[in-house]
Amino acid sequence: MEQTANQSATRTESAPADQGRDRAVIIRTLDLAKIYGEGETATHALQGVNSIVYRGELIAIMGPSGSGKSTFFNMVGALDSPSKGRILIDEVDVAQLSAVELAFLRCRKIGYIFQSFNLIRYMTALENVTVPMSFAGVSPEEARRRGMELLDLVGIADRWDHRPIEMSGGQQQRVAIARAMCNLPQILLADEPTANLDLATGESILATLQRINQERGVTVICSTHDHRLLKMCDRIMWIRDGMVERVESRENIKIKVGTIGGEQA
């Protein structure tokens, strides 16, 4: 097992190496590229990313600021159209989905935690959490009940009646997390979910992510600068300048975390 993981970490993830893990692929990107703008000012945010995410794994995406993590999330979450390349979710090309199918995908299959939260300003915390449920056809009472549960889970149940501007960044982030989980998605895309949180809360959020990953088998893709995540994740994908630098499995990096911790201490 370790051998295979090491091999796959060295370069791109090719099919033969994966089969050893005996896991289904849930997301696959093929030569994914995204260019913002045109001509002189064009930014190549992603330049040919080939990646694979397995069902039920917790994968961390690491990379310096501006390396293209959020862009990658938007593509994988079918929120933006790629300039080039393909995204397959459950082996279905996202580009081929109709508007209704896309809405269905975004609503139930994938949960998003945006880096900038994207809460709806005029709604309370609870209302924000219940919006995706109403799109999924959950009854209002049921949605409120589940919404309160989720807010309780992320530790801000007492704030259910507050609007985003009445909450701190960390509290907003937790509303965003609760919202992302409300329709029991198969995939959770978390873009720096702990960026605005204190150590303790960050820890508990990460623990929550790990729990839903392990207990419910939700595939979690999480970008972060938080090295505590590295202890929990199955694999790490390093991105730099819009390209996959390397992919490592957890067993491989435990040592590294130690060294980094050692250097810092």
Binding site: D90, V100, E101, A103, F104, Y122, S134, R163
Partner: peptide, 29 residues
């Protein structure tokens, strides 16, 4: 393998749209 049975995606009724429109307007009074 078809990923999605999209017909399950519900187009919420006018009542909900009206309610959202109203609360949005009240917020941005």
């Amino acid at each position: 393998m078809k990923l999605i049975e999209a017909k399950k995606q519900i187009n919420l009724g006018p009542a909900r749209a009206l309610q959202l429109a109203l609360s949005g307007m009240l917020y941005r009074f």
